[in-house]
Design a binder for these strands. Structure first.
Lengths: 336, 336
DNA sequence: ATGAAAGCGCTAACAG
DNA sequence: CTGTTAGCGCTTTCAT
């Protein structure tokens, strides 16, 4: 342990004045000692630092922020840290933010019944900006933040200061093209969600399929590997001819692989499978997953760059330059 | 967009005084309006709120924190968000912290060359406490934080306010017992790290093996699935008799499964494999991974409960009651 | 229902 | 090299 003896009650925090008094100097001298500023004798500096340590003094971040105009802190709102896609994204955001000396306050609204708006409400008093997967509530989130910029991901129509969306039509063309190329004649798409409403990805896939004259079977499952596996097993039992499958994301695709295996189908021979995301998980499953891959580091970097532009005034809030669109690459592995 | 018209420069933030002036009231009235406090006429409240929105006013968290004595904010220091174990842990910490109205500042020190100490240094000015996987630097981290408590995970000898460690001997007994029970005669353990030094887990496994009279082959690999796969493939080519394998964590175990498959070994028939962690990934790989499972929600809850006790003074910093030990369960799936 | 005064803990700008 | 003064933006008394 440090000098704080065990059992110390949650004693009132020491302030700079306590240290100054203990050292018999002014508080300015304490400031100089603590922040390694010039204009102080080395002996004084050390004595003050020592005293500060003994008193367990640490400067109030509020007082400091108030007077110095804080380092920026960004809120990161994530639906579900349990889907490996999101930590991968979070990781790159944290890295980029750290490089800039920002700090990131994380909120995961996946558990319990809380929504992205709850997350933003919790974050709002703590941060200068928000980056997040907010779904269609992003407009309300921006309203909550006022002038502070929100960068929303994957909500193409979002009314926020900045947005990053994905070119799912391009992705769909890549996937469907591949499936056609390997000779699939009966293609299905597994979307996320439990009702019949298509997600943004879903409608892009459906649109491209129509364009290509593909008769697409669409099915739905909750956004988990297990639900995906069950949905696929069910489909296979009713629709034996299916020989090509595109899945909403890699996590669900991993579940689909399981479901297919349990139904006695071999991938890719009986049925080719293409996921979406490009997370490392895809290389760990068997067979390894062919997938529409996003460069997660690029997504994180883009989000942070965009936010920086918004914060500095280089980009106007809500302007077209602040609406970016990223593309997937098709990574061929074993499943298709 | 909100009322802030596009293209607004990073104008100086509006303060409560600006709003008060615009509304022709005093700043207390603005405070009352913004915080839904009583003692203000409804009409006034609405007018002030409207003006505040128009001006893009949001209260300074520093001024507020200074005067109110902040909500607590905890730093979460994580080695690598890319290993699914850590986000799973982070997720439960975030959930528990959110329940208490705390907010969590995340730092991932996995990328670049930064260390856990760098992370703590970045976090230190921002937080009231730290929870994290800090390795053996935890003592220095506690020194950096002074009186503010550090809860370190997986550093049994750590000199911190609180600690949570794991009973690896118990885990090792479970795993080696299982391998013996399924008839393994040549057991290996794959540890994390590139030199010959054993990790805490490694020495527990070695100790129990000795206790049980097992001649254990120990190998090392960097903490990634790929490195683990290569190490195992290499071992198998030199040591064909190996028929049982315990692995440092599930991610590496997943890689080991790959390595074994590529070497033409069938799991579990040719070689049984047991991982450690119990993350969902284990159910997605083929064959599904038998593993020493930690209840991650419990770990997160325990860490946050412990921190709460430390913060409130219910537990003395560094006392034995603040050193907790958790146990793994053996979850039998397909790989052993 | 509203306003005035005081002060949270710190650092920047000047003194000395 | 050290101390004094002022003020960051807000909420808490306490008046009115």
């Amino acid at each position: 342990m440090t000098s704080s003896s065990p059992g110390n009650p949650p004693a009132k925090r020491a302030t700079i004045l306590d240290v100054a008094a203990a050292a018999g100097v002014s508080r300015q001298t304490v400031t100089r000692a603590m922040n390694d500023m010039p204009g102080i004798r080395q002996a004084t500096r050390e004595r003050v630092q020592e005293l500060a340590r003994e008193l367990g003094y640490s400067p109030s971040r509020f007082a400091k922020g108030l007077v110095q105009g804080a380092r920026t802190s960004v809120g990161l709102a994530i639906p579900d840290l349990t889907n490996p896609y999101f930590p991968a994204f979070a990781s790159s955001v944290v890295e980029m933010a750290t490089q800039r000396g920002w700090n990131v306050v994380m909120d995961d609204f996946g558990h319990g019944t809380s929504s992205s708006l709850d997350a933003v409400a919790r974050l709002s008093p703590q941060v200068d900006a928000v980056i997040g997967y907010l779904g269609s509530d992003s407009g309300k989130a921006q309203a909550m933040l006022g002038r502070r910029p929100v960068v929303v991901l994957d909500d193409p129509a979002g009314q926020t200061a900045g947005g990053i969306s994905f070119d799912y039509s391009h992705a769909a063309r890549l996937a469907l093209g591949r499936l056609l190329a390997v000779g699939c004649g009966h293609i299905a798409y597994l979307d996320s969600g439990t009702d019949d409403a298509l997600t943004v990805r879903g409608s892009a896939v459906a649109g491209v399929a129509a364009e290509l004259g593909i008769e697409l079977t669409v099915l739905h499952a909750a956004e988990s590997a297990q639900a995906a596996g069950e949905a696929v097993a069910d489909l296979v039992s009713r629709h034996a001819a299916m020989d090509g499958l595109v899945v909403f994301n890699d996590l669900m695709a991993a579940g689909a692989l399981k479901g297919l295996a349990k139904s006695g189908r071999t991938v890719p021979d009986d049925c080719a499978v293409i996921g979406m995301d490009g997370i490392p998980l895809g290389e760990l499953v068997t067979p390894e997953l062919t997938t529409l891959s996003l460069n997660l580091r690029e997504v994180g970097r883009t989000a942070v760059d965009l936010l920086e532009g918004l914060l500095s005034g280089a980009f106007a809030h809500g302007s077209p330059e602040a609406q970016l669109k990223l593309r997937h690459d098709l990574i061929l592995r074993e499943s298709a």
